[in-house]
């Protein structure tokens, strides 16, 4: 996995560096009154990244013959997937259904994904956290968090 990741990332970094170099060339040149404009520094960075990514690609292909380590079995990709999706849903819903409700739902789902069962203590902990943080932040510290605003 490390090796194939390195190959892909080496290429990706190379592409990023090329995009960065072309991007910095489009920045207008010297700023008034100073010898070095806003484009020089990003240009240098882009070139350095390009060289480094070439070196990374070279290193990975050189070591290509090495045997690969066995990865740990039982990676819980499904769990992480569900939590990622619910996190994204959480962000989308945050400003629509408000902080308390969205946080509560997210925590409840995440708790159950981590380990099924104990639904009542999950509900209690999720409710205490979301309502507690809201009350403390809004009432005690005078901040604002999104409220329920469907209407």
């Amino acid at each position: 996995m490390v090796k194939s990741f390195d190959k892909i990332s080496g290429v990706v970094f190379l592409v990023i560096s090329i995009l960065f170099i072309t991007g910095s060339l489009q920045i207008s040149g010297s700023a008034y009154g100073s010898a070095v404009g806003p484009k020089t520094y990003p240009l240098i960075l882009g070139i350095i990244l390009g060289l480094l990514s070439l070196r990374l690609i070279y290193e990975t292909f050189k070591k290509n013959t090495e045997s690969q380590k066995n990865e740990k079995p039982q990676m819980k990709y499904k769990n992480l997937g569900i939590i990622l999706i619910s996190a994204i849903l959480y962000i989308t819903l945050l400003e629509i259904i408000g902080f308390v409700l969205s946080t509560f739902l997210f925590l409840l789902v995440a708790f159950q994904v981590m380990e099924k069962g104990k639904i009542i203590s999950s509900i209690i902990i999720a409710a205490v956290f979301s309502i507690g943080v809201y009350l403390m932040y809004v009432n005690l510290l005078g901040g604002t968090l999104p409220k329920f605003s469907l209407f």
Binding site: I91, L94, T103, F106, L107, F111, M114, S122, I125
Partner: peptide
């Protein structure tokens, strides 16, 4: 229990960054 700890860390980060 990690079951409660990990999701709460995510929620705290969300709250903190959003605030």
């Amino acid at each position: 229990p990690k079951k409660y700890l990990l999701p709460i860390i995510i929620a705290i980060s969300f709250f903190g960054v959003y605030a």
